[in-house]
Design a protein around this nucleic acid. Structure first.
Length: 872
RNA sequence: GGACGAUUAGCUCAGCUGGUAGAGCACCCGCUUGACGUGCGGGUGGUCACAGGUUCGAGUCCUGUAUCGUCCACCA
């Protein structure tokens, strides 16, 4: 048996163990008709940089699930991969170039993309490395990237097929435009924030009349693009103006007054300026009334040539100038402070500008229908289920999805425009001529697709789709998707309708949502705050197992959690505890086979039965995705039951002369430790594997051992209860001694008076050790108790001659106090039992438990009374 | 304007299908108990945000209220 160091050093074992697993090929997902598949596809981390704690959380949950299932005999596959992250990555690379003083335009598309690929290789590899450091048991042979050849084919196939079905269309519609990223965004990519602003009230004069209307706006510069003023059809104040025209100030354009239900009579002045090109509502109204569309902003959010003399001004400068000019003209009625909601780009935070632009869209309504059904009818389960409501609400109201991006990094849209006939050719293979007129004068769309378009296909594109691969056949649908609730709309929703549309089957059976990891003050971790925690640094300090256990415990599904180094420290201590317990077992081991002895002592049955109960509970909680509860139970068992009690209990046998007893203790120690390591392995894979390898074992690796299951063979509830009687006595003695400050070195003669002599006799060997007894007498008759300290439990009265420490008066008071507490307790219990409602309506088991409790209290009171009467 | 979450020991959090509250850290007392001081034994500490209700019984279910947080939403 090899000698283990006193303190567990994660650095010395983690990479070694990981290599061993890799060499063994244990991460490999194998198609095995005799096994059930269990599949997870990783939410692909962006290749923008490095992993953060949020990833560590995500990956740990997945690794626990996949390791458990693998041990339970499933053919487990965890597909790893990374995401090209269109905007995010492009921004990063552009920032990098800017340091050298060049822009992407200087390089040109082709050269720029080379640079991005370089970046991708560098950071993609780094992320893979970090995933391995965490212990992730991914099948690395199946590593994928959203822009690799296969995924790109999937994207192309989906785009073309949706286009053919009429579910993808190109249209000049209002979209969210980020002037900094210079691209269109989907609704999901726009974040909303309240900003302080103003309501500018502007007077529009009615043509050929002294009348005027006043409109209020938060964005006065957009008036340059106004093409109507709208009022409510029933609004008596303005009814007579409908059909007339007003003169748009500054521009001096005649625009009609129209009536539309959209206008709220009671809000503002009841008159709304209509800017169809720069407001989504106005756009809709404009369509209804056939209003002219005048776009006044360019892609940098500067006023374009339609803005007349304001051309070239930035939107905010234009705002100032417009207001100033209006004021000069006397058309500005008033300015009211008003906070309003503005959209910002989720990548760069710039205020987005709604504007009309020719873009590609996915028609949502037909796709949403089935996506809603599968979640409603349970074909997909959300954990926790409260997110169903969130999902449903979004899916029911989803607008068409703008999928084109004016970027270079991404999947280029497979559409070709004919310069001769204007036809758009959308094709699976690059065409060399227009499919309609045959002209060779065609040009490919420069735009790329939304990153999330390819992510949406991830569960099946990674398994080989659009080909009919054996992987796809066997591993799809995937089993569980693990992800943060923050990307339910971006990703989860879109995977669901994509799976249903292209695979005719759900992409996953269960979605396990987790929360966000925040800093110790509850703030979101972010670069700007500088409060981010690097998981790799944490692993350096505390070890991967400690980080994993920290993340898994003390947190319930779907809830955010705060990260504390202190907690990691506690988990590192736990790892060290296991290490030393194992070290103890190994030091005492003379056997080389893991098997239970023929004869089991009471304490053996107790620990085995406890282990068995733990096994049952762990499995139950894993089935419910309560990983934190499962992990906590293992923690408690190892620390409390195994280390603090059982190991101490075996010491007399291990150090004794009885060879059979010695071997027996070793066997149970080894058996329980091994089973515990199996239970713990998915949570703390490194240390458990390292220890298991050093223990007598059959098989190659712990990670492919069978996960323990509840077994009647080691289920001893009665013996468990009997042993608890001894434990209670030990605890009672310890409490008394602690109260009197008796040091462990002081070992008085202990007399146990009980009618359960056989039980205490069974524990004789270690009872004296744990209760610090010099000599031990177990009897049913009360001895001479002169000068004794009395200790009382339900089942025994214990006496220790510590005359010098005994103050009779205090002893009497203490016992009387205990009697009173017990009596109060009993009164409450009996009150319950005499309550007819309780007896009649409470479950049988609860009533029984209550009766048992009453009996125990009566025994205790009796013992206390006797103890009091013999006090001298 | 909707929806959701949180409110439990000094701090951070558990507490599943209702049966008089748990952990880690912190704090206090004691310990060279031959695995571990990253340890051992013992202990202090909670009217479970508030108000009602259902129930024999509620931290746990229902209805409100308050505070904090998140998401969704086209009021110009």
């Amino acid at each position: 048996m090899k000698e283990l160091p006193k303190i567990y050093d994660p650095k010395a074992v983690e990479s070694k163990i990981y290599d061993m697993w890799t060499r063994g090929g244990y991460f490999k997902g194998r198609i095995d008709p005799d096994k059930k598949p269990f599949t997870i596809v990783i939410p692909p981390p962006n290749v923008t940089g490095q992993l953060h704690l949020g990833h560590a959380f995500d990956e740990t949950l997945q690794d626990v699930l996949i390791r458990v299932k693998r041990m339970q005999g499933y053919s487990a596959l965890w597909v790893p991969g990374t995401d090209h992250a269109g905007i995010a990555t492009q921004i990063k690379v552009e920032e990098n170039l800017r340091k050298e003083g060049i822009s992407r335009y200087d390089l040109g598309r082709e050269k720029f993309l080379e640079k991005v690929w370089e970046w991708k290789h560098q950071y993609g590899d780094r992320i893979v490395q970090q995933l391995k450091t965490l212990g992730s048991s991914c099948d690395w042979d199946r590593l994928r990237f959203t822009m690799d050849e296969g995924c790109s084919r999937a994207v192309r196939e989906v785009f073309v097929s949706l286009y053919e079905k009429g579910l993808i269309y190109k249209g000049n519609r209002i979209i969210n435009w980020c002037p900094k990223c210079r691209t269109a965004l989907s609704d999901a990519e726009v974040e909303r924030e309240d900003q302080a602003g103003n309501f500018w009230h502007i007077r529009y004069n009615v043509k050929d009349s002294d009348e005027y209307v006043v409109v209020a706006t938060t964005r006065p510069e957009t008036m340059l693009g106004d093409t109507a003023v709208a009022v409510h059809p029933e609004d008596e104040r303005y009814k007579h103006l409908v059909g007339k025209t007003v003169i748009l100030p500054l521009v001096n354009r005649e625009i009609p007054v129209i009536a539309d239900e959209y206008v709220d009579k009671d809000f503002g002045t009841g008159c709304v300026k209509m800017t169809p090109c720069h407001d989504p509502n106005d756009f809709e109204v404009g369509l209804r009334h056939n209003l002219e569309q005048i776009l006044v902003l360019d892609e940098d959010a500067k006023i374009n040539k339609n803005g007349g003399k304001y051309e070239g001004l930035d939107r905010y400068e234009a705002r100032k100038q417009v207001v100033k000019d209006l004021e000069a003209l006397g058309q500005l009625v008033k300015i009211e402070p008003h906070s309003h909601n503005v959209g910002t780009c989720y990548r760069c935070g710039t205020t987005v500008e709604p504007l009309t632009s020719p873009q590609w869209f996915v028609k949502m309504e037909p796709l949403a229908k089935e996506a809603l059904e599968v979640v409603q009818d349970g074909r997909i389960t959300f954990v926790p289920d409260r997110f169903v409501k969130n999902y449903t609400n979004w899916m029911e109201n989803a607008h068409d999805w703008c999928i084109s991006r004016q970027l270079w990094w991404g999947h280029q849209i497979p559409a070709w425009y004919c310069a001769d006939c204007g036809h758009i050719t959308v094709s699976r293979i690059d065409p060399d001529k227009c499919e309609k007129c045959g002209s060779r004068n065609i040009k490919r769309d420069e735009d790329v697709l939304d990153t999330w378009f390819s992510s949406a296909l991830w569960p099946f594109s990674t398994l080989g789709w659009p080909d009919k691969t054996p992987d796809l056949e066997y591993f799809y649908p995937t089993s569980v998707l693990v992800t943060g609730y923050d990307i339910i709309f971006f990703w989860v929703a879109r995977m669901i309708f994509s799976g249903m549309e292209h695979m005719k089957e759900v992409p996953f059976r269960t979605v396990l949502f987790h929360g966000l990891i925040r800093d110790d003050k509850g703030r979101k971790m972010s670069k700007s705050l500088g409060n981010g925690v690097d998981p790799i640094e944490v692993i350096e300090t505390y070890g991967a197992d400690a980080l994993r256990f920290n993340i898994i415990t003390g947190n319930s599904p779907g809830n955010d959690m705060r990260y504390y180094n202190e907690r990691c420290e506690a988990m590192r201590n736990f790892a060290n505890k296991i290490w030393n317990a194992s070290r103890f077992v190994m030091m005492n081991l003379t056997i080389d086979k893991n098997e239970l002895p023929e004869k089991l002592e009471l304490e053996d049955k107790w620990i085995l039965s406890k282990l068995n109960a733990l096994t049952g509970e762990v499995n139950e909680n894993l089935d419910k995705f309560e990983l934190g509860i499962a992990a906590n139970k293992i923690y408690d068992f190892i620390w409390d039951s195994y280390c603090d009690w059982y190991i101490e209990l075996t010491k007399p046998r291990l150090n004794g002369d009885d060879e059979t007893a010695k071997i027996g203790a070793q066997k149970v120690l080894l058996f329980v430790l091994t089973e515990t390591l199996k239970l713990l392995h998915p949570f703390m894979p490194f240390i458990t594997e390292e220890i298991w390898q050093a223990l007598p074992h059959e098989g190659e690796a712990l990670m492919i051992e069978k996960y323990p299951e509840f077994s009647e063979k080691i289920n001893f509830p009665e013996d468990e209860a009997k042993f608890e009687i001894i434990m209670n006595a030990v605890r009672a003695v310890r409490v008394r001694r602690a109260e009197m400050n008796v040091p462990p070195s002081k070992k008085p003669h202990l007399t146990i008076v009980t009618d359960k002599k056989d039980i205490f006799e069974a524990g004789r060997v270690y009872l004296s050790k744990l209760a610090y007894a010099g000599e031990l007498t177990i009897t049913d008759t009360v001895p001479d108790t002169e000068g004794s300290v009395n200790v009382v439990t339900n089942d025994a009265k214990l006496y220790m001659p510590l005359a010098e420490l005994v103050d009779l008066q205090k002893e009497r008071e203490r016992i009387e106090k205990e009697i009173k507490t017990a009596k109060d307790d009993l009164a409450r219990t009996e009150g319950k039992l005499s309550n007819q409602g309780f007896i009649a309506k409470a479950p049988q088991a609860v009533v029984e438990a209550e009766k048992e409790k009453a009996q125990k209290l009566r025994d205790l009171i009796e013992n206390l009374n006797e103890s009091l009467s013999t006090l001298k």
